[in-house]
C-alpha cells in the first residue's frame, strides 16, 4: 500500500508507469552516454501488444545510446489520463515524444500544444485529427480491417464451401481512430461479398469478460452465424474463450494482434486467422524517428508498418515467430521485416 493516500484515479497508472520504467531502465552506464530521454506514451500498459511497442522502443534506444520513458494509461478508454500525461510532458520539455493516441479527436489538442512548444511528436499506431506532428508511423488500419474481412470470408469459404452467411463483429470501443478505421475496413471488405450479411456488432468496452459474454450471446442469438471478427487483442481473448467454451467449430473467428492466449487458440484452430501488426517495429521506428526529429532531420509524414495474416496452418512458420511473439522478435534490416513476404501473400 502506498504511504500517501491516492485520491484520484490518476494515481495507479502513473505509479505503474514510473515503476515499469524503473524496472526496465537501462543501467546507469548508458545514461552517461547521452542524457536524452524520449517519452513513449502508449495506449494501454496492460496489453501485451503495447509491451511489444516498448520492447522495440528499448531496442532502438539501446542502439542510439539514449533513454526512453514508458508512459501510458492502464486502459485504452482512459482518454483524460493520456491527455494529462501529455500536459505533464509538455511542461517538462523533452527533446521529442512518441505517442500512440487513444483518441483521434481528443488527442489532437495535446499534439498541437507539444508541437507549438517546439517538441516534435512522432505518432505511432493510430492517426490523430491534426497534421502538426513530425511523422505518423502506423498500421493502415483501414487496410488492416480489409485484410481481416477477406480473411474471414476465406475462412467461411473453407468451412462452408462459399463466402456466404451471417457475420458479426466485436468492437473494443467506438472512440479510437484506429479501431474505427479497422471496423470500417472490415465492413468495406465484407461489402465485396454479396452473400455475406453483417447482422450485429457489440461494444465490449475493452473488457475481456464482457467480450466473452457478448460472443456467447451472439452465438446464441444467431444460430446460423458463420463468422465473428474481434477487433483487438482483448476482444480476441474473450471471443476465443467463448468459442472454446461453446465448441463453436463451424463458426469462423478472426481476431487482431497476438496475445499468448490468442496464439494458443490459433494453434488449436479455435481462432482461424490472426491479423497481426508489427508493434515492435512501431516502437522501434517511433523512437528512431523521434530521435532524428530532435536532431532536426526531416521525416516522411507517414509510414505504414503493415499487417500480416497468420492462420492455423502458418502459425508455426518461422517468419511469424517474431510477429506472434514479439519477445522472440529478431531485428532485421531497418524497416524491412523478413515476414513481409510470407505475410503478404
Amino acid at each position: 500500500m502506498p504511504r500517501h493516500t491516492p485520491c484520484s484515479p490518476r494515481f495507479a497508472p502513473l505509479a505503474l508507469g514510473v515503476a515499469l520504467a524503473g524496472l526496465s531502465a537501462s543501467p546507469l552506464a548508458s545514461a552517461q552516454e547521452s542524457d536524452i530521454t524520449i517519452p513513449v506514451v502508449i495506449k494501454a500498459t496492460t496489453a501485451s501488444y503495447w509491451q511489444a511497442v516498448f520492447d522495440g522502443a528499448h531496442q532502438a534506444a539501446d542502439r542510439l545510446g539514449i533513454q526512453i520513458e514508458e508512459l501510458g494509461p492502464a486502459n485504452e478508454t482512459e482518454v483524460a489520463r493520456q491527455i494529462a500525461i501529455m500536459e505533464n510532458l509538455i511542461s517538462r520539455q523533452p527533446s521529442a515524444i512518441v505517442l500512440a493516441p487513444v483518441s483521434n479527436d481528443a488527442m489532437a489538442g495535446p499534439v498541437e500544444s507539444a508541437t507549438d512548444a517546439g517538441i516534435p511528436v512522432v505518432i505511432i499506431d493510430s492517426g490523430v485529427d491534426t497534421d502538426r506532428y513530425a511523422s505518423l508511423i502506423a498500421t493502415d488500419n483501414f487496410a488492416a480491417g480489409q485484410r481481416a474481412g477477406h480473411a474471414l470470408a476465406e475462412c467461411m469459404e473453407r468451412t462452408g464451401g462459399e463466402p456466404a452467411g451471417q457475420v458479426a463483429y466485436l468492437r473494443t470501443n467506438p472512440n479510437g481512430e484506429s479501431l474505427v478505421s479497422r471496423d470500417n475496413g472490415f465492413l468495406d471488405a465484407i461489402g465485396e461479398y454479396p452473400e455475406i450479411e453483417v447482422v450485429d456488432n457489440r461494444v465490449a468496452n475493452n473488457d475481456t469478460a464482457k467480450a466473452m459474454n457478448d460472443t456467447l450471446d451472439l452465438l446464441n442469438r444467431y444460430p446460423d452465424l458463420k463468422g465473428i471478427f474481434a477487433d483487438n487483442q482483448l476482444m480476441g481473448d474473450g471471443a476465443g474463450t467463448a468459442f472454446a467454451e461453446q465448441g463453436a467449430e463451424d463458426v469462423c473467428l478472426v481476431a487482431f494482434d497476438s496475445s499468448e492466449l490468442e496464439v494458443d487458440f490459433l494453434r488449436q484452430g479455435i481462432i482461424d486467422s490472426l491479423v497481426v501488426q508489427d508493434p515492435y517495429m512501431m516502437g522501434y521506428t517511433g523512437v528512431w524517428f523521434a530521435y532524428a526529429a530532435s536532431q532536426g532531420v526531416a521525416l516522411p509524414t507517414s509510414v505504414d508498418t503493415g499487417v500480416h495474416v497468420a492462420t492455423t496452418e502458418s502459425v508455426d512458420e518461422p517468419d511469424f515467430t517474431g510477429l506472434l511473439d514479439p519477445k522472440q522478435r529478431q531485428l532485421t534490416p531497418y524497416l524491412a521485416p523478413s515476414a513481409t513476404a510470407a505475410g503478404d501473400d
Binding site: 495507479a12 505509479a15 505503474l16 500498459t45 496492460t46 501485451s48 509491451q51 492502464a74 496475445s259 499468448e260
Partner: peptide, 12 residues
Amino acid sequence: RGGAFLVSDGTS
C-alpha cells in the same frame, strides 16, 4: 489494480 499490473508485468 496497480499491484495486479506489477505482479503480471502489465500483461495477461
